[in-house]
Design a protein around this nucleic acid. Structure first.
Lengths: 337, 337
DNA sequence: ATGAAAGCGCTAACAC
DNA sequence: GTGTTAGCGCTTTCAT
């Protein structure tokens, strides 16, 4: 099982190893004749580049590390699809790892990726991450660090996000315009600015309509389908029900709707609901869910593009800190009253 | 931005590079005193292994390649979550790429991964892959090749799957037992044995109940939500409707249910429906979807475990060709009549 | 228990 | 346009 090396090709073709190397890289200095000869021979002999030798030499790994909270989320996998597409088109490999929403696992993953010498790192933060010190070494070594969705303002690095404050505001305003006045908000860990900002937008919209913020109306959950079900139960256990709910993700909203309906609540007549993400689930719940379209695939492509751009620029350019992608409200039956 | 090497540590500690290397690998031959000294110095100097030098030397990449049809599918991302978990626990990296359901892209990805010298390759086939020749080189080089879900019988390699024929049979039999007699089947490309086998199970169940197979009752689609909607429209355009439908994935089933309901069809009274996968979507459609629980995460873990086992065994053991995981029918309202 | 030395396969500076 | 040469940083055999 001996591997073919450039020396083997050199021997067979009668040129030097350097010429073989250049030919395989399509170096302009080599004559077409030799190039063709070498390339054909390489093909014939079943040669494949030893990327380790090459990387040892050039000190470029052509690898981008990715840390996401979890892989089994529609949103995340859509973003990853976009990242992978662009990375692949540019001959970059991805090493993908999941933090399982744990800051500790995130730190371990960051170390592992640091030690694998990824050329760059793309992160969406775990829900309970508070200290960013596990990313410090990337900054120190000037390894491009990029956040998407759940970002980080601590370092001078790019965040690719949507305007969560604005979308939280729009979601809530939409409910207000539909006549809702007692609007609950179901969200995730407020450590994550995505949730903090959606909450801020929610509060701003309420204030604009003269409704004071009531912390009793805000529910912090882990945003799963089951959390949606449990939150609905929580609603039902209270003295009075809301007439509208803004839920910061569609899966959770779907669970909530399902449980409310089982208890005889009519959606949207009794309670109107707005979700977030435009997950496929939002199109099949009954009634179909009004939601915020989150451009996941485009976000992935954008993240990947910016990363590769940074990787190509030897000198680190100064980028604006936040890149905003356009999100928009999609009105469906769950608020049609 | 110079990297610290073992030579730097050797210089600082006054031992040789070889001793440093051994110490960092916890080699038993080195005295605890020296080991401790070296390890502390390494930490202090911010040393990190140069995996490329190491891999160049040892010819092990500690990397497993993965090719999946797409990343943005609940099922796939669940399996990947399982694969990543086990791989990570065993210090293996993953290079994940998507074929976008195209045999051509799959072949390109396979080549890329081959050239990156992955230690092993895990694949779930694209829907239109027919020739397996792009995997031949892995076989030739005795690089462990493993398929999951959408497998391949062409080579002597392991497939981690569920018993699709059986589950297709059970799904259909469930409908028959509920009194359905005119049962349609919506499926994917029959080139993929998952779909071929579900169809086979469907046919067997029908036969058992004395119902002849009618090709008019079988619909080949790409299995998306929109395909579900279109297939429902197709049903409605025909002279008579089915009284039961077995749909080979939940997203497609959800789309189908949604469209049927919009046209006044009652589920399950008029048409009972069984899906496949136990996707979260199956719990929030109305009525909740009877489906086949597909153990995605466990499948991922199993795939990863077997791969790592093969990687550890120097001599290739003979494995049974197919590893079956237990799937089971989950009865919900969509067949409750 | 530790060190010396060779070499994994490639690239790039330099020479011609 | 092509060859020579010197490493990249690590592991490992052999020697002591």
């Amino acid at each position: 099982m001996k591997e073919v090396t450039i020396y083997d090709i050199a021997r067979e073709t009668g040129v030097s190893a350097a010429t073989v190397s250049r030919s395989l890289k399509n170096n302009a200095a080599i004559s077409d004749k030799v190039k063709k000869l070498v390339q054909e021979k390489a093909e014939e002999m079943g040669y494949r580049t030893n990327t380790f030798a090459s990387r040892l030499r050039t000190k470029k790994t052509n690898t981008i590390g990715v840390i996401v909270p979890r892989l089994d989320s529609h949103f995340i996998s859509t973003v990853l699809a976009g990242i992978e597409k662009i990375a692949n088109d540019n001959d970059y490999n991805l090493i993908i790892s999941q933090s399982f929403e744990s800051a500790k696992k995130e730190a371990t993953n960051a170390s592992t990726l640091f030690n694998s010498r990824v050329d760059g790192l793309i992160v969406s933060l775990a829900s309970d991450t508070s200290s960013m010190k596990h990313f410090k070494k990337f900054i120190d070594k000037k390894i491009p660090l990029l956040f998407f969705d759940r970002g980080c303002q601590e370092f001078d690095c790019i965040n690719v996000v949507i305007d969560n404050e604005k979308m939280g505001y729009e979601a809530t305003k939409h409910l207000l315009e539909k006549g809702c006045r007692r609007i609950y908000h179901v969200s995730g860990n407020p450590n994550r600015d995505v949730y903090a900002k959606r909450l801020k937008g929610y509060t701003r919209a309420l204030n604009e309509f003269g409704i004071p913020f009531d912390p009793e109306w805000v529910f912090e959950t882990k945003m799963t389908i089951d959390d949606g079900i449990n939150t609905a139960k929580n609603f039902l256990s209270r003295e009075s029900l809301p007439d509208g709910v803004f839920i910061a993700n569609d899966a959770c909203a779907a669970g909530c709707i399902s449980e409310l309906k089982e208890n005889g609540i009519k959606i949207p007549e009794d309670i109107a609901i707005v979700g977030f993400n435009n997950d496929p689930i939002s199109r099949v719940v009954e009634p179909k869910l009004t939601t915020i379209h989150y451009p996941g695939y485009e976000m992935g492509e954008m993240v990947s593009k910016i990363m590769i751009e940074q990787l190509k620029n030897e000198e680190k350019e100064s980028f604006t800190n936040c890149v905003y992608l356009e999100a928009k409200l999609i009105e469906r039956q769950s608020t049609n009253k």
